[in-house]
């Protein structure tokens, strides 16, 4: 029996740009199940990154409601939402977004910084996930000493080190060559098989083949189950 992890109801988001108002989201309602992998596609400005930031507890919607694991996310205070992110979410950002002066292991330990774990426990947890993403021998390297694919793996390791139920990824393969991109998508697939829920914003239709479901966004709305979406999905899953 499938269990809903994320429930979004009539989410809207309006930004002010000078005297103008930009409607980034126009009433998005969506459920995502636990253990599901969902690709969010759409043109630039369609609202997919805004949706991801709202799911990530970083960007309060103008109206509507979002619950993750039964928790009304924006009913929480800012500081409680920070705690929520630490325990429930892992982020994989565009361009990896690693801290340049921290080693791979230290970058991975970042979400554990404010936990009560001992230093030894933190190091062990970081080592474990770095091994999981295939970077066992490069833990003490700075981001500048790693390739793009390796940096992406570090970013993924950082997202999963605190064993969250949900990982949000924003264009994780956008700055990688196709072969490395495929390796990264296979890594996501593996994590998803282990029970992790993945929501990924992507421009690359190829990536949708690795996901359970693809959502198309258009002008701040979810597109109907259009032929485009179906077409994308017919490519089928490879793994």
């Amino acid at each position: 029996m499938t269990e809903v992890l994320i429930t979004m109801k009539e989410l809207t988001k309006t930004y002010k740009s000078g005297n103008d108002e930009v409607q980034a989201l126009r009433g998005v309602s969506l459920d995502i199940n636990r253990g599901e992998s969902v690709a969010v596609m759409g043109q630039s400005g369609s609202g997919k990154s805004t949706l991801l930031s709202i799911i990530g507890g970083l960007n309060p919607p103008s109206s509507g409601r979002i619950e993750i694991d039964g928790i009304d996310l924006y009913a929480l205070s800012q500081e409680k939402r920070a705690d929520f992110r630490r325990e429930y979410l892992g982020f994989v950002f565009q361009q990896f977004q690693l801290i340049p002066y921290l080693t791979a292991q230290e970058n991975v330990m970042l979400p554990l910084t404010t936990t009560g774990y001992s230093g030894r426990k933190k190091r062990e947890m970081a080592e474990k996930v770095l091994c999981r993403v295939g970077l066992a021998g490069k833990m003490n390297r700075l981001p500048s000493q790693l390739s793009g694919g390796e940096q992406e793996r570090v970013a993924i390791a950082r997202a999963i080190v605190n064993e969250p139920p949900l990982v949000l990824a924003d264009e994780p393969t956008g700055s990688l060559d196709s072969r490395t991109g495929e390796e990264i998508m296979e890594l996501f697939t593996g994590l998803n098989r282990e029970g992790l829920t993945v929501v990924m914003v992507t421009h690359n239709p190829e990536n949708t083949r690795y996901m359970d479901r693809t959502i198309l966004m258009q002008d701040g709305r979810l597109a109907d189950n259009s032929a485009d979406v179906l077409k994308l999905r017919t490519a089928g899953k490879r793994c």
Binding site: G56, L58, Q78, E79, A82, D83, R85, R86, E87, F91, F93, Q97, I99, L110, P111, T113, T114, R158, N162
Partner: peptide, 16 residues
Amino acid sequence: TREIGIFRAVGFRRAH
């Protein structure tokens, strides 16, 4: 700025 955004995204409180 961006670095601070990462800290906040991975669960750092404002006080941290």
